[in-house]
């Protein structure tokens, strides 16, 4: 997708401030810019606001101060339903764990974003949903698991299914919130390799969050949230 507002950056944040309800300020970022197609590693200690920032970027949480341009859309100015539509169309999201709807099969979990949103589905072009699912499943090595109930999968398998779902139908931005923290080292490395190649193939921007700074070397850009986020520094002081 071509960015309309600010060409040249996948994410552009200016003086963003956010707090949950009337609670303390969780996010206070004066400036942050991420180039399209880059693979970004964002790290910081627990509670520094990583998940919160991802929620804002995905349009689930609504910041009212500053501007948050994602793929050219200023999420601060979009309404709730516009942000939902935006997320459905452009973003793939992987949680730390419990990514899957328990009563759906792996296949149906992967299909969900395309089934919920027609525009996300339209990104497949002439490719059928079924073919796309089987393609992304083979990339992530879960072809044999598609018919399984998601509760029957191991944690590592679940994370790969979640990654397949996030990558289906060429999202512009893939957001991963500590997707490897419940995996052992071997599985973590395999998962990261699969994720990196799939994201590269989809030409998407990857925003990968972890508290484990050691993973950073595998990414193009490494960012430390506490250094970006004034709220976190104030908190830590």
């Amino acid at each position: 997708m071509t960015a309309s507002g600010r060409p040249g950056s996948a994410i552009a944040i200016e003086s963003l401030q956010f707090s949950y309800g009337t609670g303390p300020r969780v996010i206070d970022i004066p400036h942050l810019e991420i180039a399209p197609g880059s693979r970004v590693f964002l790290h910081g200690p627990s509670g520094c606001g990583k998940t919160t920032l991802l929620g804002i970027l995905a349009g689930v949480l609504h910041a009212t101060h500053g501007s948050v341009h994602v793929l050219g859309h200023d999420l601060v100015r979009l309404s709730g339903s516009q942000r939902d539509a935006f997320r459905a169309e452009h973003i793939g999201y992987v949680f730390q764990q419990f990514n899957l709807i328990p009563y759906l099969s792996a296949y149906d979990n992967i299909a969900l974003p395309c089934r919920l949103d027609a525009r996300r589905r339209a990104r497949l072009g002439s490719v059928s949903l079924d073919a796309a699912i089987r393609d992304v499943a083979s990339q992530l090595d879960i072809s044999a698991l598609l018919d399984q109930q998601s509760t029957a999968l191991s944690v590592g398998q679940q994370q790969r299914v979640a990654a397949a779902r996030a990558l289906l139908a060429a999202p512009d931005l893939v957001i991963c919130d500590e997707p490897t923290s419940s995996l052992d080292t071997d599985r973590r490395d395999a998962f990261l390799a699969l994720l990196a190649s799939s994201v590269a193939r989809a030409n998407a921007t990857l925003l990968f969050v972890s508290h484990d700074a050691a993973l950073g070397s595998r990414f193009d850009v490494q960012l430390s949230l506490p250094t970006l986020n004034r709220a976190a520094r104030a908190d830590a002081a």
Binding site: S81, D84, A88, F95, F98, I101, P102, L112, L116
Partner: peptide, 16 residues
């Protein structure tokens, strides 16, 4: 609640 958060993340709006 987890299920709802997942649904939201994959594009379900609150109305859904």
């Amino acid at each position: 609640r987890r299920e709802m958060a997942v649904l939201r993340a994959v594009g379900a709006r609150p109305g859904m």
